[in-house]
Computed example of a mutant assay.
Amino acid sequence: MRQITKELIQKYDIRLTKSLGQNFLVDDNIIDKIVNMADIDKNDIVIEVGPGIGNMTRRLAAKAGRLIAVEIDKHLIPPLEEVLKEFPNSSLINKDILKTSLEEVIREEKEKAPETEHVKIVANLPYYITTPIIMKFLEENPGIDTMVFMIQKEVAERIVASPGGKDYGALSVAVQYYSKPERLFDVSPHCFVPKPEVDSTVIRMKVFKEPAVKLINKDMFFTTVKASFGQRRKTLLNALSNSNKFAKSKEEIRQILIDLGIDENARGETLTINQFAQISNRFAQPTQN
């Protein structure tokens, strides 16, 4: 795969763009492992983000009912067209995934293959916009079942982190509100052309049909989470009262924490998603006169 990649780069005179985070995965074993972890069959619509020159795209298309490759770089469209010409079940979209309507794309693909039942996302994500892409999928979620991503190792550690650890933060809570993330395996920089400067990790996220907790106000929940982690060295009480995001005095916030059995001197990184939900639901309740 490494040699084929170099030949395609030379054939199409491709100039890799550092600003787009272009590092092509060329290790056949790793590609096979990623595809296998997505457990793809003909009942699936698969969206691949940033297919590059199609090293993984070909294998995804061979297994999926429908394959949609979304590539922002127009210079990579010709090699992708070459790769996908033998797969009539594939579509190639030259757009920025952050500006693309997932609902519209999936609806169009389901019209082409109404027998498909599931939607899966598989991608070697550009590391510089990993979080915005993941959160777009989770927040918009037009029926996504599973997502398998290769991302920067440090980001993967934050996504799967549990309460109490240094990696646990707002990103951990946000992802785990929408899904159950699982760390699968690490990938060496030597598996890419060109080699990235960081280690990579493959994660799988099983998307919940309903979020992990019931909320009165989702915006209030995420505001509470961000405020709790905004000043990590401060106690939970001080972090929440100093944020000025809640129409509550410090004493009112203290009483809410006492009522919920949450230590006011705890730090945000020790709270579970359920505890964040309890606090935010109390903040969202109308003030009693």
Rank of each mutant, 00 (worst) to 15 (best):
185 F>M: 09
191 C>R: 03
222 F>Q: 02
70 V>I: 15
121 I>D: 07
19 S>L: 13
82 E>S: 05
78 P>K: 08
192 F>V: 14
241 S>E: 06
172 S>F: 02
71 E>M: 02
239 A>T: 11
198 V>P: 10
139 E>Q: 14
91 S>C: 05
205 M>Y: 07
109 E>M: 14
32 D>F: 09
54 G>Q: 07
247 A>H: 05
95 K>R: 15
235 T>C: 08
261 G>Q: 02
23 N>R: 07
183 R>L: 15
224 T>E: 09
94 N>F: 08
79 P>V: 12
175 V>R: 12
252 E>F: 00
181 P>T: 08
262 I>M: 11
142 P>Q: 07
3 Q>M: 03
26 V>N: 11
61 A>S: 08
189 P>W: 09
230 G>A: 10
175 V>H: 08
247 A>E: 12
174 A>P: 00
4 I>N: 15
94 N>Y: 00
83 V>Y: 02
125 L>P: 15
163 P>C: 04
59 R>T: 00
142 P>H: 00
267 R>N: 07
30 I>D: 09
182 E>I: 13
17 T>M: 10
72 I>P: 05
201 T>G: 04
227 A>H: 07
121 I>H: 04
165 G>Y: 09
225 V>I: 04
238 N>K: 11
203 I>T: 01
85 K>S: 13
121 I>K: 13
124 N>Y: 03
83 V>L: 06
285 Q>W: 00
25 L>A: 02
85 K>P: 05
67 L>K: 03
187 V>K: 08
260 L>T: 04
89 N>I: 12
278 Q>S: 12
113 A>S: 07
54 G>R: 05
179 S>I: 06
201 T>L: 01
191 C>S: 15
5 T>V: 14
234 K>L: 06
102 L>I: 02
119 V>W: 00
64 A>F: 07
203 I>D: 04
210 E>Y: 05
143 G>C: 05
289 N>P: 15
33 K>Q: 13
100 T>L: 14
178 Y>Q: 08
61 A>D: 07
197 E>G: 14
92 L>P: 13
208 F>W: 03
283 F>V: 03
25 L>V: 09
193 V>G: 01
37 M>P: 00
